[in-house]
């Protein structure tokens, strides 16, 4: 279910992982006016005809989820963006990767709530698989600007296997500690 912007972001990240990407870069910019996410992957990419079809509800390549037929991520995102007068774009080259960008303005009544940012980054980092993930999060307000970066392989190097519960607890605490200082800034919209 998509209830927040973070839900859309996590969906797009999951698509990137399932497209067999080896490097995924996530750029999140939280400004006074808007919340913008960009997910760049180097996965299998899409042809022009596939790009047209991903906007069809229930279209899926049939590979990702063999036992269930979904395919609502992009249609839901585009619907939400359109309802709130935001922007979205999808660029993809077959065999090279995909870049999805979407942005929601804060002054529109239909803009979904942001959601829980550290939990979203934690979930993205802990998807199983062998891939590098770079997360860049920047927040800017009239009162100041701050942000942080997370690099998956760097964290795996320190914490070891991210499927171990001890590693997960430390990763969660680490991401929370990066985010906590930004809470005051985030509130001052």
């Amino acid at each position: 279910m998509h209830e927040s912007i973070c839900d859309f972001l996590l969906d797009i990240i999951q698509n990137a992982i399932e497209a067999r990407s080896s490097v995924i870069t996530i750029i999140v910019e939280d400004t006074s006016d808007s919340f913008t996410c960009k997910v760049i992957d180097n996965g299998k990419g899409m042809s022009e005809s596939e790009l047209e079809r991903i906007r069809d509800p229930f279209y899926t390549d049939g590979v990702k989820h063999t036992k269930r037929k979904v395919g609502l991520g992009i249609p839901f995102l585009e619907q939400a963006v359109s309802m709130s007068d935001g922007d979205s774009s999808i660029e993809s080259v077959k065999g090279e990767g995909t870049t999805i960008t979407f942005s929601f303005p804060f002054d529109h009544i239909d803009t979904p709530p942001i959601g829980n940012i550290p939990s979203t980054f934690f979930a993205a980092m802990t998807y199983p698989g062998d891939f590098e993930m770079h997360i860049h999060y920047a927040i800017s307000r009239d009162s100041g600007a701050d942000g942080y970066e997370l690099h998956r392989n760097e964290l795996i190097d320190i914490l070891g296997d991210l499927s171990m519960s001890q590693s997960l607890i430390l990763l969660r605490d680490f991401i929370r500690s990066q985010d906590e200082d930004l809470e005051e800034l985030r509130k001052n919209r």
Binding site: E154, I158, L159, S167, L170, S177, Q178, E180
Partner: peptide, 17 residues
């Protein structure tokens, strides 16, 4: 809580290990 550095995370990991 102040931002945890990667060095602090590494030290915490060793301690937990």
């Amino acid at each position: 809580m102040a931002k945890m550095t990667l060095e602090a995370l590494r030290a915490l990991r060793e301690e937990k290990k």
